[in-house]
Nucleic acid binder design. Structure first.
Lengths: 118, 118
DNA sequence: ATAACATTTGAGCAATTGTTCAAATGAAAA
DNA sequence: TTTTCATTTGAACAATTGCTCAAATGTTAT
């Protein structure tokens, strides 16, 4: 993954500093989980779905109407969110009702909103 | 963007519900800014950079060493983060020192960590 | 059974992304 | 000046993404 730059990496970096920071970083597996979580929130349609579900439990049809994308695209995104453990669903006959699976999402979005509005 | 599905969208959706939820949603422009912010956090390398800068101000060289990607790739990502107003930099001779530009980032990451660890 | 229909699924496609490579900047040292 | 070197930049490329379309499920109604 990292080729060359031998000078920079071996001789000139502030090794103490780098090691000190490295020690404080979360494990790669956690950083990976975090980035995956943010990836789920990084798409306009998915984020709108989550914001909608934060208000109320909704069926695929209604979510599609709210987001303005096709039912198929909505279903694809919902599966993604389900895999990311961000939403849950219950089946009622033909209908499938989705809901938010995690209260943290609201807090995350709220903090991000502060950043956007500052 | 949404073709067909006339039945689903015009006749069968719970229109009251949909309208009520729609009214409570943030404006599209804000949702867009939010998703862009999350996009900045959604890449492993970029997130690691931000976590590192949360600890200490660092030069490009050191950041490259910490993340394990090339200096060039690091620089590209730093520019992205700069455009997203998530980092700042100061120049000192040949060196460029980057730092976190926003304390919210830590809070966002902390909330996301709770989600990942639950 | 057959039809209707909400939802899911998989293939295919254009657009975006993260990286590498090579070359360009720009500042300090020789 | 010339060299060195941290950083930036742009082109190119493979990999990923989010969508559409068509077909498949699975459930309810006729």
């Amino acid at each position: 993954m990292n080729k060359g730059n031998i000078v920079c990496e071996v001789e000139l970096i502030d090794e103490k500093k780098v090691k000190a920071v490295k020690k404080k970083l979360p494990q790669d597996t956690l950083i990976n989980q975090l980035s995956e979580t943010f990836k789920s929130l990084s798409d306009f349609t998915r984020l709108k779905i989550l914001l909608s579900l934060a208000e109320e439990e909704l069926c695929v049809c209604d979510i599609a109407a709210l987001t303005g994308v096709s039912v198929s695209a909505t279903s694809h995104q919902l599966r993604l969110l389900k895999n990311a453990r961000l939403v849950n669903y219950i089946k009622e006959g033909k209908m499938v009702y989705y809901s938010l699976d995690d209260e943290h999402i609201n807090k995350i979005v709220n903090e991000a909103t502060k950043h956007c509005l500052e």
